[in-house]
Nucleic acid binder design. Structure first.
Lengths: 212, 212, 212, 212
DNA sequence: AATGAATGAGTGTTCATTCAT
DNA sequence: GATGAATGAACACTCATTCAT
């Protein structure tokens, strides 16, 4: 207790913003922006409403800072994508695994995605930032990998035109998980294996050039 | 428009529910459930708040009925899926096209998807209904097609395990469109063609059995 | 049905006001003036709100007419009081019985009394009418009886000064019944007998002139 | 009044509930539960509607707490009844005086009685509490006094069967006062004297055992 | 006469925000 | 910095009343 109090006085206050942001994440995620109550956020931290306003000017600014704060693991996708090594194929497969880890597995990322979808129309800034910081870089990275693979003769040029197609199964699994919650019961490992296998090799037994 | 003032009371009345539901769709889509105002819905129809309550008991019930009402083209996916004819491959391709039309192209379906994602936690009934009426039937239909194709020796058994993978590109495009709105600029035809091509034939030039 | 319809067409309408007044009595009694709903009154009759307004201009006027209409058995007390015959004592006893019948026994009278107590401050006219038509005449009649009895040497002059004292037990029983409702379990006959016995003969074994 | 502005926030706050309850008493008494407006209660205190809700969750709970709070002098009847000393006769007479003081004289008690009569059907809890805390104890006390007096040979056994009869004149005077308001002009002292005299000695000059 | 759709003025309640302590 | 009492602007919902049919 002696040491805790020493930490407390000085550090308690330093921790406040982070505590409030964490509480805000939970409340905004559970209720959405409009229905979340500042008082419930304060209660979660164990302080009163007024205290929240000491650190954040308005509910709106708190929301925006919370989104920024909770997008960390989101932004890590782009970071990790850039650090990959090996052949284009290896890096593609590794990148896919990264997205499963950072997006599908990570509750925070998933819920931020929900909030971007639901509150986007009201907070265009947030959408733009996510586009700039996450979507665009990842798409760019995938595009680079694909070009490289095509140049190396590994990937079919006409099938490497859309980066979105490469990651679609992760995004789809994530969205379904957002919608169904705990009821979504996916064999994660099998799904990822099938994802990569299908992506690389295709569904048909006798591949044809026919386009439908 | 020419004979609009000919509408009798009785005709007016018969139209009211549909008018209100249409207005409710716009308001709930723009603002989300909590932030939408019953009065704005009424204004949109050109009536007063009280009139909305003549037809819908509460804001909550209005929301639920609006979701049900606006899910029509959503539910048509499952309907149309069942009517397809031809080889498993033909039907698979046709089904994919149906989903682009009914989900990706259709603003109503897209926005309902946004609302299911954002309001789902608060309206579990709605999620369950969508799961039962849309998600499950479509997954089942795709699964049936895949089994049939495998049996016919057309599809690789180990790559036909997850129906979600087949449709992932449509869902992903839809979600990105929800997030980016008008800024999402996709070459629809090329994307669909690439989707199907990649799905059937795979990305790699020399397919391998290697699993990553 | 044949004969009923004949009655219906012509008489249904003649009955409407009475039906509405009866329904209004129930609703106003159950909920009080402010909380009663015109629509509930209409529902009770099996017509729509508009019909009530065909017969009664406003909720307020309906309330007032209902009170007037339902005060019949109330007003009969004064009427019956005037028709009594016999010695002052006989008439006094008979009058007491009449009040038990017309007020304590009669649900309508009791509930009108409740409404006069509760809505009186908002409807002073109603109170004045009740004072003039019921309270004053009955008090006057009792006073006349008492004077006569005193003149005849039957009643103690100093104990015959307040008519209210004579009827207090009936009013009290009625008020308690209003408050407790079905939980009020009074041995009616014994109570009336004790009322009259006590009134005439007093509680003390050795009466004294002492005043406390 | 001189130092009124000296009140600190804390002191103000400590007073608020009592102020609101007092204001609520006036508004509920004047208008009844349904017609009373929370805003008028707030205005009376000099605060805004929101402030009332800081202290009382709902209008209904405010009403119930107000009734409880304003029933003090009501409950004192039972308390004072238990502290009486002297012969059964003395105590009976003293008890009657107590009821005149605490019920007939006291505006708060009278108006609470009005509210119990008018709002009882909607607030059965309140009625039950009043029955348990006030009606039953007083009846019990009077019954005890009567039994004692009968045992002591002071009271006629057959005329001492109903406690209600003993107090009926007070209740009756109170009810009439509730109905007539300021127009009720009673010679209080004479009435009380006549009440007790009549109760003890009876109306008849030559008492008879005859029962009517 | 009867209907019932529509109105609009209200009313209870909520909640982000402020500010004196 | 932290509090929490107070505010006031909203907002869902109600209901007496009207009126075209």
């Amino acid at each position: 207790m002696v040491e805790q109090r020493k930490l407390t006085r000085a550090e308690q206050k330093a921790l406040r913003p982070a505590q409030i942001l964490a509480a805000a994440f939970e409340e905004f995620v559970s209720n959405g922006y409009a229905a979340a109550r500042v008082e419930d956020i304060a209660d979660r931290v164990g302080v009163t409403k007024g205290t929240v306003y000491v650190y954040f000017e308005t509910k709106e600014l708190l929301f925006e800072e919370m989104i920024r704060d909770s997008s960390r693991s989101f932004r890590d996708i782009a970071l990790k994508a850039r650090e990959l090594e090996g052949s284009p194929l290896d890096r593609l497969v590794a990148l896919i695994h990264v997205v499963y880890q950072q997006l599908f597995d990570d509750r925070q990322s998933r819920e931020i995605m929900r909030l971007v979808i639901s509150e986007g129309p009201k907070f265009p800034e947030i959408v733009k930032r996510h586009e700039r910081d996450f979507i665009d870089p990842v798409i760019a990275e995938v595009d680079a990998l694909l070009s490289e693979g095509v140049k190396a003769g590994m990937f079919h040029p006409q099938r490497a035109g859309f980066a979105e197609l490469i990651l679609a199964p992760v995004l789809t699994a994530t969205v379904i998980r957002l919608i169904l919650g705990d009821r979504f019961d996916l064999q994660r490992e099998d799904y990822i294996r099938a994802h990569i296998d299908l992506l690389l090799n295709g569904l048909q037994v006798s591949p044809s050039g026919k386009v439908h």
